[in-house]
């Protein structure tokens, strides 16, 4: 029964993805691993960058939330600056994920996170501190890193 739901969501995301997002399968034979390309939002220091993410749907999907990680390095308080690119966002926590929640909602939540970091819930303390104390320096660092990794 999971297959039908995933196929339907995939179809929607392929034909009418949220603005600034492109979706395709990592491997055509496996509908559980999605490749996401997200444009840096216009009003953010990430603008101009193309960020690659990997979305993995567990076998229990949609009863368990999907896992999603940045494959492209990104300088952001809520994303680890390493090869994992892990993040912690509300909608993916098991107490707020509902089986009727949809992948486009997850993707737009991430876009929103790029526009508005949540430094109090940070996984990168250095970036969070800079964001709070010297917004200009933070923006510059984020732009530089975007240039370096996401072009």
């Amino acid at each position: 029964m999971t297959q039908k739901r995933i196929s339907k969501e995939l179809q929607e995301c392929l034909t009418t993805p949220p603005a600034g997002i492109k979706v395709n399968l990592v491997d055509e034979g496996n509908i559980h691993n999605w490749n996401i390309v997200m444009d840096g939002p216009a009003d953010s220091p990430y603008v101009g960058g193309k960020f690659q993410l990997l979305l993995v749907l567990p076998t229990e999907y949609p009863f368990k939330p999907p896992k999603i990680n940045f494959k492209t390095r990104i300088y952001h308080p809520n994303v680890t600056f390493d090869e994992h690119g892990s993040m912690c966002i509300g909608i993916l926590k098991s107490d707020s994920w509902k089986p009727s929640s949809r992948i486009p909602n997850v993707l737009t939540a991430i876009q929103q996170l790029l526009l508005e970091p949540v430094p109090d819930d940070a996984v990168e303390q250095g970036a969070a501190q800079k964001f709070k104390e010297d917004r200009k320096a933070f923006d510059k660092e984020a732009r530089d890193m975007t240039k370096k990794y996401a072009k």
Binding site: M1, E60, F63, K64, S94, D95, K98, P99, S100, S101, R102, N105
Partner: peptide, 28 residues
């Protein structure tokens, strides 16, 4: 929702997550 989905949802919450008092409707 269909009964099967409802059941699987409750199973997930109760058995896997040990939740009881705060299980919400599956609707987002």
């Amino acid at each position: 929702y269909c009964a099967d989905c409802y059941r699987q949802y409750l199973n997930q919450k109760i058995k896997e997550e040990g939740e009881a008092a705060r299980i919400q409707c599956p609707q987002d």
